[in-house]
Every structure is written in C-alpha cells, then in structure tokens.
C-alpha cells in the first residue's frame, strides 16, 4: 500500500511540475494546486498510514501521529491562500498587460508557435 501511496505522490508531483512549467497563468495555477496536493500527502505519509486510529483521545487505544496532521492542516489553508493570491495575480496580469502569459509577453509563445 505504501508503494501505491508513493506512486500517487510521484504522479501528483510529475503532473504538478509539468503544468507549473507551462507558459500561461492558469495552467501554472493548476500545477501549483497539484504540487500542493503532492506535498501535503507526502507530509501526511511521514506519519505513516494508520486505519481507524484518529488522534482523538478516548476513542481507541492506537492513535495516528497527530503532528504531521497538524502541519498538513495549516499547509492546506496556506496553500489555499497562495492559490487565491496567484489567481488574482493572473487576473491583474491580464488586466495590465492584456495577455495571460506568465512573463507578461507572448513572444515566447509566438516563437514556439512558429517553430511548430
């Protein structure tokens, strides 16, 4: 099961990285979201995967590691704030520069287009 979990983290990382390397803002936002999923799951996995062991005292005798969970919880919220901020940056770019290229210029895209 751990191997499958690791593969999931890997897949999310790979897809996230690929989308982060795109030239337009929206795919980059998607890529960052995927990357944050990957990082959150990775952190969560550091506490190992335990079934029926929620860290609420009194419910059972075995508890999952609460520390990574606490870290991931805040990480989720921060990632949300970051996503919102990046989306707004994308909108601002669009408004100020008239395009949604990450570098604010479509030169690169045009060059790529012509070479295609």
């Amino acid at each position: 099961m751990s191997l499958l979990f690791a593969l999931l983290v890997g897949t999310l990382t790979a897809t996230g990285v690929f989308l982060t390397l795109r030239a337009q803002t929206f795919p980059v936002v998607l890529g960052l979201t995927l990357l944050s999923y990957a990082v959150n799951l990775f952190l969560f996995g550091m506490g190992r995967l335990a079934s029926n062991a929620a860290a609420v005292l009194g419910a059972q005798t075995q508890y999952a590691d609460p520390l990574p969970q606490a870290l991931v919880l805040t990480a989720i919220v921060i990632a949300f704030a970051m996503t919102a901020f990046v989306i707004v940056l994308a909108l601002k770019t669009r408004a100020e520069l008239g395009n949604d290229h990450v570098d604010g210029t479509t030169d690169d895209a045009q060059k790529d287009d012509s070479s295609q």
């Binding site: 983290v9 790979a14 990285v17």
Partner: peptide
C-alpha cells in the same frame, strides 16, 4: 516532470 515524479516516489517510499 518525470524525473521529479520518480524522485518524489522513491523518496516517499524510502521514508515510509
């Protein structure tokens, strides 16, 4: 991206 994914997989599995 593929290399990053492979790295992340190995790292995750190595720890877990």
């Amino acid at each position: 991206a593929l290399l990053s994914g492979v790295g992340a997989t190995i790292l995750t599995y190595a720890v877990m």
